[in-house]
Nucleic acid binder design. Sequence first.
DNA 1: CGGAGCCTTGATGTCAGTCAATTTATGTGG
DNA 2: CCACATAAATTGACTGACATCAAGGCTCCG
Lengths: 247, 247
Amino acid sequence: MITELFLEGRLRQALSEAEKQVLEDAVGRCVILPAREVLIRKGELAERSTYLVEGYMLRYIDGIDGDRQIVCVHVPGDFVDLHGFAMKRLDHDVCALGEAKIAYVPHKALSDIMRNEPHLARILWFSTLLDAAMHREWIFRLGRLSAKERLAHFICELHTRMAFVGLVENNILRVPLTQQDLADICGISPIHINRVAAELREAEIATLARPMLHIHDLQALKDMCQFDGSYLYGEGRLHVDSELRLK
Amino acid sequence: MITELFLEGRLRQALSEAEKQVLEDAVGRCVILPAREVLIRKGELAERSTYLVEGYMLRYIDGIDGDRQIVCVHVPGDFVDLHGFAMKRLDHDVCALGEAKIAYVPHKALSDIMRNEPHLARILWFSTLLDAAMHREWIFRLGRLSAKERLAHFICELHTRMAFVGLVENNILRVPLTQQDLADICGISPIHINRVAAELREAEIATLARPMLHIHDLQALKDMCQFDGSYLYGEGRLHVDSELRLK
DNA sequence: CGGAGCCTTGATGTCAGTCAATTTATGTGG
DNA sequence: CCACATAAATTGACTGACATCAAGGCTCCG
């Protein structure tokens, strides 16, 4: 199943087998997107959404002076632009980080789900709100944390999300983000990213050696940036709303 | 109609009269919330959502050292915690700014809408994604703008949103945010907010004189922070998806 | 009239940006 | 397999925007 990673570790277990099949059928066949390829540009009308199977994708807003702010990083199992279904046009660009394997979902299929599968629809809604929850935490990160804390916080988030979909082994992840990318995520200069990354390395907390990320001391990493992963809704299984299926 | 401001200036005109009535019926009677009263705390299970009729409400994340980051400001016509319907518990606190008039919507009523009114459901989904779009712009603001630009950018956003719901007259708005609040929004210290606010005043661009905000030169304000309000989807009327109503 | 909360202003310190140069990977074609 | 070109990472020196500390002045309300 292509969609087996969707909300894995989160609400996926709230889906019935029939719903999983509906979702799987809604997704087309896989396509490979070359590294750094732009999938959608701000303002374009969208008639399909994109499900990420392998690799990373980035959402970003470009400023007028060429300064870029990455607003979301997507990992396998994420819908990259499901919000495009309800919004019709995006307010930002989306691109692949490295090479990415994706599958498209026609909005027609999503309309059918809205009409016939209210419970599944609510789960899809939830998944877009998970992005919003991450956005909020990013706002906190940028507004209230120091440069070193921001980087640590981002690494914690990435680790948690990748662990959900089984892509962390021995606290090692494949993360092909450049220091420039990390700068665009953390809202600091690439030179300073280099310095704080060096500090983390020297403190034997985490080592960024593209394309691999080694986390040596996860607890220390979390402690230094007051990371509380509850916004990722990892224990969502406790809060499944079955009401929509009862009737 | 209590809900007449909902998505006013945005997708409201996409709703049929029948749908407007369904929405209106879903909303209970109005309640007054005292200034600074906390409506919901992080982690609480939600069984209803809140529609804001009058006043302002704030969503914020508190750090460990008492440092607060406001992640969203709500104006009349907004659902404050509609995402609580799909998420069941919130990842942040919500409070009133000044006195606020609100109305509750039981999640039971929202479930009914999900089941019976797919088009209206999609519009509700859209409204939560509008919050996400604002979150993204806030990320850009915090990550890439200077202190003065951040304040200008926030003022532009507030102006645009308040104008949608008819609460701006002669470029004057009622905004009872303190400088501390503005600091918690812009991710800078209250002292520095005072300084950049003074700069805007002296440049005759905008004057913050709580509880009123006067914008003297809107164009200059927008120019100085590269404000592009398209993320607020003000011309959403162009992109209405009627497919869900056709069948 | 007194106090609390908010706003204002000045002095000083620091975190992170910018500029500039070097080293290390990555990749391409001969 | 090596030479070269390009992108990425690293390091140091200098600068500046904003934080912090500290003190004083409003303004509203009981």
